[in-house]
Every structure is written in C-alpha cells, then in structure tokens.
C-alpha cells in the first residue's frame, strides 16, 4: 500500500506546508499579494459582468425619467449646499470656541470611496477586500465606514487592494460609548459567527443602565477609530459574572451582510 512515491508526496506536502507556515508575516503577505495577482483577469471579467446590466438599464431608461431624476438631484443639491454653508459656519464657531478653551482643533474627515470586491471565503473570519491600496494612500488601521455607520478597519494593504477586518471579527475591537445620561463605555467584540448584524458591547460598568434603542458610538479611545462614529443601537443588556460587569447586544447600523461600497477614512 505505501510505496516510495507515496512517502515522497507526503513528505513534500508536509515540507511545503511547514515551510510556508513558518515564514514571517511580511513574507507571507508578499506571497499572498503575488497569488492574488493571478486572479486579476477574473476580477476584470466579474467587474465587466456586473457593469453590463447596469449599462443596459441606463440605456433603456426613458428621457422623461432622466429629466425627472436630474430635477430631483438639483433640488437635493441646493438643499445640501445650504446645509453645507450652515455647517461651515457651525464648524467655524466650534473652532473659535475650542481655541478660546485651549482645546485642540478638530480636523475634518477625508474620505475615499472604495468598492468591496470580495469576502472572506472562510466562515470563521469577517474580512473583506476593497479596491484601494497603498497606491491610493491606504495604510493599515485606517477606519472604514459607510453612510450608516462603522464597518471596520484596514488590516493589510497591497498596491491595488486592501483587506479590511469587519466589526464583529475577533481581530476588530472598538472602544465604544453609549449615548445616554451616564455615557457608559465598553468594548465592542464579536458575538456569533452567523448573524453579522449583532455584536457584543462588553466590559460595561455593573451600574450601567442601558435601554434598548440607545445609540452606540465610537469613543475615540485606542487611537484607531475617531470619536463619534455611529456603531449601532442597544438591543438588550445583561449582568455578567454575578454582577461584575454588564454586557449588551448591539445591532449594527451598517449592513455588513451586503456591503458594496465603503468609505476609507483618512485622518
């Protein structure tokens, strides 16, 4: 049953696996980058295939409908412009007050739009890949958001693509605060492998009095996520370890199950 060629095959696979597993992270990142490049033709094909129905739908849209949409967008644009003028005035006033109090000036967020090109094929990680890389200025630990709320952070970067670790993955912990009278603080950790919309807010004070529906935002502690990014809403809470601390379930604002476009937040 066990011929020499079987021993050779077994030895070869063991050798290759152990060799690759023992490589330093930097080297494995480079190999991942090189192997990922093999799939670029398929990415191109998939992108073109996704674009085709949208193009066809655009070309089939009647002129009247387009004019109606333009009119609607114009009105929305005017409304947003007036809001922008107002917010500039508020920001200026905020800066003046901050300088009077001797506080550090707040910098406005710089955002870059990215497309989510793939998800982690393994069920035990929550990561995704976006089409921005080091060429676009992306670097490790930059926060990633959508209009609805926090999504995660950049975990590794290649020239053209970056991997983002989503909120709810064991490798993405966020310091968070609840928008209530006591501003209870805790840490967002993973909850379970199936429901991507729920996470746990743990290490809350035992006296924390949380109500369902209260908003949870990033606290700004930890240095990765800026303060004030919406994370989600409290679903329920319970006491842990005979009242040592409180834990709450949080429903995420961003829909991580169907991410298509995200914003990378530059400091």
């Amino acid at each position: 049953m066990f011929k020499q060629k079987n021993y050779v095959a077994l030895g070869a696979v063991l050798f290759v696996a152990v060799l690759i597993l023992s490589l330093p992270t930097r080297a494995t990142d480079r190999i991942k980058l090189a192997l990922g490049a093999w799939f670029l033709p398929l990415f191109g094909l998939a992108g073109a295939a996704q674009q085709l129905p949208a193009d066809l739908a655009d070309s089939a849209l009647p002129r009247r409908e387009l004019l109606k949409q333009i009119d609607k967008l114009r009105r929305e644009n005017q409304q947003l412009r007036s809001q922008a003028v107002q917010s500039v005035a508020i920001a200026r006033e905020n800066d003046q007050l901050r300088s009077l109090l001797g506080w550090q000036r707040q910098m406005p967020w710089k955002l870059k739009l990215a497309n989510v090109v793939m998800r982690d094929p393994a069920n035990w990680w929550r990561t995704a890949e976006i089409d921005l890389g080091s060429r676009d200025g992306v670097r490790v630990d930059l926060p990633v958001i959508t209009a609805a709320g926090l999504v995660g952070r950049v975990s590794s970067v290649s020239l053209l693509r970056s991997q983002i670790v989503l909120i709810g993955d064991p490798n993405c912990r966020v310091s968070a605060t609840v928008e209530n009278a006591t501003h209870d603080m805790g840490v967002i950790v993973a909850s379970g492998p199936i429901d991507t919309s729920l996470v746990e807010l743990t290490y809350l004070a035992s006296s924390a009095n949380l109500k369902p529906g209260e908003i949870v935002k990033s606290s700004g502690l930890g240095g990765v996520f800026p303060k004030g990014i919406t994370i989600g809403q409290i679903v329920d809470s319970r006491s842990i370890e005979y009242g040592l601390y409180t834990e709450a379930r949080v429903k995420l604002s961003a829909n991580l199950g169907s991410l298509e476009q995200v914003w990378v937040l530059f400091p």
């Binding site: 095959a9 696979v13 494995t28 190999i31 793939m118 094929p121 393994a122 993955d169």
Partner: peptide, 29 residues
C-alpha cells in the same frame, strides 16, 4: 495521479488562504 493531488492541495490551499484571513498555508494539510 498523486502529483495532481499534491498540486491541488498546495495550490488550492494557497489560493484559498490568499483571499482569507487564514495564515498562509494552513489549508494545505
């Protein structure tokens, strides 16, 4: 044949780990 099985384990495992947060090479064995 056996070399094809070896190739599938090594390349398939490496490709899978490339797109995953798995450490590279963990799917080969």
């Amino acid at each position: 044949s056996l070399p094809v099985i070896v190739l599938l384990a090594v390349l398939g495992g490496l490709w899978f780990d490339t797109f995953s947060a798995n450490p590279l090479g963990v799917t080969i064995l």
